[in-house]
Design a binder for these strands. Structure first.
Lengths: 231, 231
DNA sequence: CCATGTGAATGTTTTCACAGCT
DNA sequence: AGCTGTGAAAACATTCACATGG
């Protein structure tokens, strides 16, 4: 997934400088995007090796980045390590989850219940149940009324009202390109703040809405550039 | 899709400097990753507005980037525009497709035929049939032998031999994290050159193999950082 | 005029390298 | 001795702004 318009960090953390004055620390979005990988890999290291303590270089090695990058990234948020020792793995997981606000459950609206939408709904991978699909919408009459896991599929006409009612802040767009902007507009009308966009197109949204594009086809199409000639 | 280890451009284009000496123009991977979006959006503009000619600013506006970026990106590969006029949309599509080597069909190996793998196999979105799933593998006895679109699902034991036989260069990993590296190793043993990785982990590969990670969960987990407080 | 293509400037991200703490 | 946290440097990416040419 490669977002072309990089959403910038709004909602900047404020920090106190040594001199005591308050300044805004604008945390790069590229850093925010890496944090989930740190959490996931820390969890893996805990489960596999049972290690309590992890150094930035150990974590870096497992992820395939540099230790300096991890230290720099974490330094945006505070000081979590012990010199000479490393990081307490379990505590670091908690800290990052707190930073990312993954220490609570978020309800999600899924729009589009075709092949892709169905796969997303069935997917168990939103693992520690941080995310819960609270409502599903489709425009297809045949699908409306059908229910999955106790969730009745609603008409896309109800998107705005329904998500506002439920207070859902995160939406997943799994509809064809032609309807994606219309769906995005409806979600925004309902007060959405974040969109995971599977449609292969750019969504027009204000800066207050975070968008992440999931684009496996684009990823494939860019890899062919590097393939060897001569076959 | 967010690759953390950015694969660097190998296989650099060589160009002739004005003075006549040959130098390597290393094209940034971030540029390569944008090209599919340019093609896709150009196609959209052609279909929707029927415009023959497109300026960098028009294309940029449709994508949500700057015109300068598009001009700079294209300049890595040549001079495709007409001053005062813009780009011939149809020709630019062809040129970029040629650069990306999307002017041919690529056979793909899919590993993992669970929920996700099935969704990928059924997915019609590898649209202009640039990619064709040539073989599918799974480790589950029950699934082996099953056939989809005339493709018989094979045992994962056969990965290396089978893809070498067929000359497949692109693999899709749609297996759980625990098996992902094993599958990647098998694919590499069979001579794979590019991997689209849906497993939420870092794959250890030599630089000669391009990897793109597809990570919708990570994308979601990073968006929560920006959600409004207060409820 | 209009819009490309590109040096130069600017902005962003990563890495280096080491003082300082355990 | 080992590893963090971070200034400073380097590498990388984007934007500015304009000469150039249809």
């Amino acid at each position: 997934m490669q977002t072309i318009r990089p959403p910038r960090a709004r909602d900047a953390q404020s920090r106190i400088s040594p001199a005591g004055s308050v300044y805004e620390a604008e945390i790069p979005d590229v850093v925010i995007r890496r944090l989930p990988i740190y959490v996931r890999t820390l969890q893996l290291l805990i489960d596999q090796t049972g290690s309590e303590s992890v150094s930035s270089d150990q974590l870096a090695e497992a992820i395939g980045v540099s230790g300096a990058q991890i230290r720099r990234d974490l330094s945006y948020f505070g000081r979590f390590g012990k010199q000479g020792k490393g990081y307490d793995a379990r505590r670091l997981v908690e800290e990052i989850n707190r930073i990312l606000r993954l220490d609570q459950t978020w309800e999600v609206a899924l729009v589009g219940f075709g092949n892709l939408g169905r796969a997303i709904a069935q997917y168990g991978g939103f693992v520690p149940s941080t995310f819960r699909i609270a409502c599903i919408f489709d425009r297809n009459e045949d699908r409306i009324g059908e229910s999955v896991d106790g969730i009745v599929i609603q008409s896309d006409v109800d998107i705005a009202e329904s998500i506002r009612q439920l207070g859902v802040k995160i939406g997943i767009i799994a509809v064809p390109q032609a309807s994606a902007q219309i769906v995005a507009d409806a979600l925004m009308e309902g007060g959405i703040e974040a969109i995971l966009n599977y449609a292969p197109c750019h969504l027009r949204t204000p800066n207050s809405v975070t968008v992440r594009d999931v684009d496996p086809v684009g990823a494939m199409q860019s890899m062919t550039y590097y393939l060897s000639t001569g076959d």
